[in-house]
Write a protein that binds this DNA or RNA. Structure first.
Lengths: 225, 225
DNA sequence: TCTTTTTTGATAGTATTACTATTATATTTG
DNA sequence: CAAATATAATAGTAATACTATCAAAAAAGA
């Protein structure tokens, strides 16, 4: 039933790197080691010097792949949203009913992430934790407008657009599809982070993926009038 | 009709500062100048050295008030949520109908912020912009658990709790009041930031405060079954 | 296989950041 | 007016976020 395909690669905006990290052994070690180390010590404490030690290379070598740690985070975020988009396509193709498609799509963007054996160099569980806690930092800063011009957020916009258009299929008169989608996506990220660190800001319910249930319910109620 | 009161002061968790900035001229200049400068150059580029120059003081003097720029941001965020909580009380007292109270409360936490003449040392419009783009950084880092123990998020939790309890008054069987509240609050912040920088992630509608309308509608539909 | 190109490692250096420490000078308060 | 407190001036440190240079190793091309 489930098919796996190890011949696929996600296309990442080349403006995010100086040299394609997927093109060499060191490049792949930077990605893999970078995910491990950022997850472990957090983006603020993370430096290329520490990463060099972690992967047994040198600072200068890493700088040949990425201009800065900010750009590395952008690369990882682009990869993540390309991956989500790919899974959205898988989850929704050949499903006739728009409402079913919408529910499957919301499942994909809100559920707890699992390992994907199609991409061996990336630990998706760790990457997801990084996305929850670090990825908003790529747009919450003064470079946002120029980074936007460089196309660093198009992958995310594509995901938002894909979901918005399914919403409009279900209810063509709904006025705020993009707001609803970003509310769900960002919301799901927050709830999972809160559940770990600030539990009084969310509602944890035993034996239930409350996050996914809550957001599915929210969408159904708000678009079906 | 509208009453103003210049004798009020918001109580801020003293663990966030070394010396109370409201207690001296320099302290107030640090708050006022800090808000101006963070708004202008962003939190990443902001340093106490630059702030010292901005307010014509010295780096070492500022360090006597705040341990780090991180603590200053925590102080500003605490102040902001204390102020929101105070406005929530004003907006909801003496309103009988729980549904009305809820709508007024949502108005307070989602609307575009205006100057409050009760607090002359703080530019609330600038502070609000800082909250939108910088305040999530206070919990999206590895210090979150110890900062939580220090009580740096209680002010925010109080606001969430206040809104959650109104929701439960309207619908006592609603399962996810905290999720709904944080979804709204964080969502409204995101939408306003997106409207400025990433408009394709939101829906901007002329002559309408789409953010407030959207979230009021969302709450009504999701809690009234 | 030999040569050329590319990739990586080793080392060094710089401006800035995020602080701490010390001492002198104002300013406030009792 | 003295004593206490607040602020300014200056100096110093370890770490960060890079850039530059050059040699060694590996890969690719002929």
């Amino acid at each position: 039933m489930k098919q796996s395909n190890s011949n696929i690669r996600l296309t990442i905006n080349p403006e995010s790197f100086l040299k394609d990290p997927e093109s060499s052994v060191l490049g792949n070690k930077i990605i893999q080691g970078g995910i491990e180390l950022i997850d472990e010590i957090g983006f603020e404490a993370f430096t290329f010097k520490k990463l060099a030690k972690h992967i047994e290379s040198t600072e200068a070598s890493i700088y040949r792949y990425f201009e800065s740690k900010h750009k590395l985070l952008i690369y990882l975020t682009l990869w993540y949203w390309a991956w989500v988009d790919y899974r959205l396509v898988l989850a929704t193709t050949n499903i006739e009913c728009p409402k079913d498609r919408l529910m499957r799509a919301i499942q994909v963007v809100t559920e707890a992430v699992q390992q994907d054996s199609n991409f061996l160099q990336v630990d998706e569980v760790k990457l997801h934790r990084i996305i929850l806690s670090e990825s908003s930092k790529i747009y919450l800063n003064k470079k946002v407008d120029s980074d936007n011009s460089s196309g660093f957020f198009t992958q995310y916009k594509d995901v938002v657009e894909r979901l918005s258009s399914i919403i409009l299929e279900v209810n063509p008169t709904f006025k705020y599809p993009h707001m609803l989608v970003t509310t769900i996506i960002e919301g799901a990220h927050h709830q999972r982070y809160f559940a770990e660190h600030l539990p009084r800001l969310t509602d944890i319910i035993k034996n239930e993926d409350a996050v996914t249930t809550f957001y599915k319910d929210l969408v159904i109620k708000s678009i079906c009038d």
